[in-house]
Each structure stands twice: as C-alpha cells, then as structure tokens.
Design a binder for these strands. Structure first.
Lengths: 129, 129
DNA sequence: AGCGAAGATGACGTTTACGTAATTCAGACG
DNA sequence: CGTCTGAATTACGTAAACGTCATCTTCGCT
C-alpha cells in the first residue's frame, strides 16, 4: 500500500519534479511537509495539493493564484467567517475557467480547420511533383 | 470603417497592451509592422496575429510556442517543404489542447462540488448562530 | 522658429519560478 | 571510526516577459 508519508526523493519520482521545486513550494506555503528531525516528510495532503498545483500550472495559473485556489480545497472550521468571501473567489475562478474552456473549444476548432487546409495543400501538390 | 493600418497607440487602445509590449513582440518576430519613416504601422495581419498571441497567452503558451503556432496560420507557398513538419507540431498542440480541455472539465466539476460543500457549510451553520 | 505630443531607441530593472553550486549535517554501514 | 549517501541550507544565477527611465526624432501647430 502507499505509505502515509513520503521522502522528498519519493515525491520527486512520483510527480516528476525536483527537490528544489518541492522546497520552493514549501517556502511559498503551497506545501506543508512535516519534519522528522530536519528531514521533510510529505503527507497524503501534500500529495493531493501537489497534484492540484501541477494541474493549475498546466492551466496557466500563477503559483500565487494556485495558493488561493488551494485554500478553497482545504477549509478548516476556524475559517467560517472567511468562507463566503472564499466562495466569491471560487465563483470568479469558475467563471474564468468556463470562459477559458469556451475559448479553448474555439481555438481547437480553428486549429483543426487550419490543419485541414494545410493538409489539403500538401496532398494536392505532391501528386504534381 | 476600420483603417488598413494603425499606429502603436491605436493598437494599445484596441488591445489593451502597452507600446513596450508591441515593440517587444516585434523584436521577437511575432509581429511585423511596416514603417512610415521610423514609425510603426500595424497592418490587419498584425492585428490578427496579436489577437492570436493574446489568446495563446491566456492558454499558458510561451511566446516562443505561440510564434510556432502563428507560423501555421500564415503559410506562404515558399514553405512547402516545411509544411508537413509544421503539421506535426500542430498535431501535438492539438493533442495538448484536447488534454487540457479534458482536465479543465474535470477541474470545473471538482470546483463546483467543493463550492456546493462550502455553500452547505455556510447555510447549515448560520441558522444556529 | 519654437514647442509639445507621439513615437523610437537603448539600456537597466523587476517578477516569477525555479536551476545550480557550495557547504553542512545526520544516519547507515563496513 | 571514517565514509558514503540522502537531504538540508544558503545563496547566487537564469530565462521569460515585459516595466521603466533617459534621451532623441519627428510631426503638426502657432
């Protein structure tokens, strides 16, 4: 079974990142590994967060934006007063993402068309050569 | 009617970018404004390209990646030999975008769920207070 | 002729997101 | 006990994408 905590190297292998990256994310308060002496131990929670971080990056979010999004996923009961504010942020992000999805659909269509055109140019000229 | 060419300021107003940005894009060969003396004049083609550049950025592409994509959109006949190679690049980009689209769907779903949960927490605790 | 606004041209500065040593430390092992 | 290995810390370096002066031209007016 998957262990409860992982060393930095295990994390690197599992997620294909460097130790530097993990330490950097910790310094930016995106991850909170516990310590065994001075060594970092990454918990299941850290792994879940890292997964979201890497996804966020693929979407073009900055680490700071990702940090705010992560806060939404890990809400503890002491934050109740901030919840509705957080919800507002989430609503904006959601709108952003839906806009982005619409744009992406459009862009995919355009790219497909363009590729068809280029493909036609290729196939219509080759026979002549 | 929209003019055939635009000054740098008109471009900035139209696309909400700075002059520096436009000059920078020219230096990176993303735009090719013509010159009137030493002044830049941006053509319809530059406008089309800039639109694609800004969209590409929203998708998280680097300027260099965008430059390669732009090449796909502005193919002249002298490039025939490179076309199929370009097509390969396009195919990869397309796959990337489709993967991103799938991930985005998933992320939107998760975010929606999370928001529902948080919303429930809010509405179930308020009455008690 | 003179002036102001728009634009051009360097050139150095800045932020983000790490890379890359150099050095240190702590536990494992022969 | 010496050493090797994995990891930590510190700190300087870097690429991308512009921002921000400081000059310098060049029109268009008055």
């Amino acid at each position: 079974m998957t262990q409860d905590t992982m060393t930095i190297r295990q994390m690197c292998d599992a997620f294909d990142v460097t130790p530097r990256t993990l330490r950097f994310y910790e310094s930016k308060e995106l991850l909170f590994p516990i310590r065994d002496g001075q060594r970092r131990l990454f918990t299941r929670r850290d792994r879940a967060r890292l997964k979201l971080i890497l996804r966020g990056k693929r979407f073009g979010f900055s680490l700071e934006e990702i940090r705010q999004l992560l806060d939404l996923y890990y809400v503890d009961d002491s934050q109740q007063t901030q919840l509705s504010q957080t919800l507002d942020i989430a609503q904006e992000r959601l709108s952003d993402m839906e806009r982005q999805r619409a744009e992406l659909d459009e862009a995919i269509d355009e790219l497909r068309n363009q590729m068809t055109l280029v493909g036609d140019m290729l196939s219509s000229n080759k026979p002549a050569a």
